[in-house]
Computed example of a mutant assay.
Amino acid sequence: MKPTKQKQIIVCFDGLFPHGGLVDRLKGIISFYQIAQILGYDFKIIFNNPFDLNLFLEPNNVDWQIDTSKMRWHPTKSKIVYLVNNFEVNPLKLIKNSKAKQFYVYANIDYGKIIFPDLKTEQLENKWRSDFNHLFKKSELLQAKLNEIATDPFIAFHSRFTTLMGDFKDTTTKILSKDQQNTLCNNLMTIINRVKTEQNKSAFVFSDSINFIKFVKQNTQVNIVEGNPFHMDNFINNNNIDGHLKTLIDFFMIAKSDTVYFLNVKPMYNSSFSKYAAIVGQANFEVLEA
């Protein structure tokens, strides 16, 4: 596609660089969609690695799909903008001040506070949700899978272990001993059972650790969603569509909950996965540290 008179932003997830997980990618997409709105630029997404995004999320009010076979690089009018993990830049100024006509963007950060410095947290979250829904609707495949999980009102618990449970490789390397793993799992279940009793609602547990999910399944009546979780950028067989589908199902199930509780007990890791799911679903969000 030759650069048109209207300037164009194309956010890219094509396998050239690691971007992080689903929510990191969504952060990059939404940030540059917001910039495109402000500047009146055409907006497109290339998301074909490690799967085609439109398998799960399709264009809603914006036609963000692009035929990559028709794209043409122009030496002076095209520009690559690489901002992965770059928290220092003002991307709006960067794009606005460039003379390029077409921007190929690699980004994974929510720049909302920089783009809209006058908005408060709740306003930023409302805008993020609105823009997400403007861009995306669930595919028939994803909606059908979600419909299969019949639920009464429920609360959601989310945890991020990365490598602590020894069940997959990630950017972190620390693995707890079996005794430490059991102690941590039992501590988390104490918290989950306490909150579940207080709320007196059905509950689902979501996690990046299949070992923790198995522990929950074997030791409690708390619900789980079947499937093996993994991280998009660190999955050996990342062509496994069922694995990616599980990530999307978890995200929208968390969004559907009444309240999301993020379990952040030391030495566990932080995650924005459930926070942004809560934003999309307008669910309450709380962090539980003990």
Score class of each variant (00 low, 15 high):
62 V>S: 04
179 D>E: 15
288 L>F: 09
115 I>A: 08
288 L>W: 10
4 T>Y: 02
131 D>W: 02
204 F>K: 02
69 S>E: 13
41 Y>K: 09
54 N>P: 00
226 E>G: 05
205 V>L: 12
195 V>S: 03
20 G>W: 04
207 S>D: 05
53 L>V: 04
214 K>P: 01
14 D>R: 05
187 N>E: 15
190 T>Q: 13
228 N>L: 13
226 E>M: 09
68 T>L: 07
279 I>H: 03
137 K>Q: 11
212 F>P: 00
228 N>H: 14
93 K>G: 00
228 N>T: 15
188 L>Q: 13
249 I>A: 02
61 N>D: 13
72 R>K: 13
263 L>Y: 05
73 W>H: 09
21 G>F: 01
214 K>M: 10
67 D>N: 14
206 F>D: 06
17 F>C: 00
125 E>W: 06
284 N>V: 00
266 K>F: 08
52 D>K: 11
171 T>W: 15
203 A>D: 09
225 V>M: 09
251 F>V: 03
21 G>M: 04
1 M>N: 09
141 L>H: 10
236 I>T: 13
184 L>C: 04
79 K>P: 00
1 M>E: 12
271 S>I: 03
181 Q>I: 11
20 G>R: 08
45 I>G: 02
4 T>L: 10
266 K>H: 07
1 M>F: 03
236 I>Y: 14
61 N>R: 07
274 S>D: 11
78 S>H: 10
117 P>T: 11
93 K>V: 01
146 L>K: 06
180 Q>C: 01
102 Q>Y: 08
167 D>Y: 09
26 L>F: 12
206 F>N: 07
100 A>S: 15
242 D>M: 11
67 D>W: 03
4 T>F: 03
24 D>P: 02
176 L>R: 06
203 A>S: 14
16 L>C: 03
169 K>I: 08
248 L>I: 03
180 Q>F: 02
218 Q>H: 10
210 I>T: 06
286 E>T: 13
206 F>M: 08
182 N>K: 14
146 L>E: 10
217 K>C: 04
124 L>R: 14
278 A>W: 02
87 F>Y: 15
94 L>D: 08
283 A>T: 12
273 F>R: 05
5 K>T: 14
46 I>C: 04
40 G>M: 10
183 T>N: 10
80 I>G: 01
189 M>R: 07
179 D>P: 00
121 T>Q: 14
250 D>A: 02
18 P>R: 06
103 F>C: 04
138 K>P: 01
38 I>K: 15
193 N>C: 02
8 Q>G: 00
63 D>L: 08
139 S>W: 08
58 E>M: 11
262 F>E: 12
114 I>Y: 07
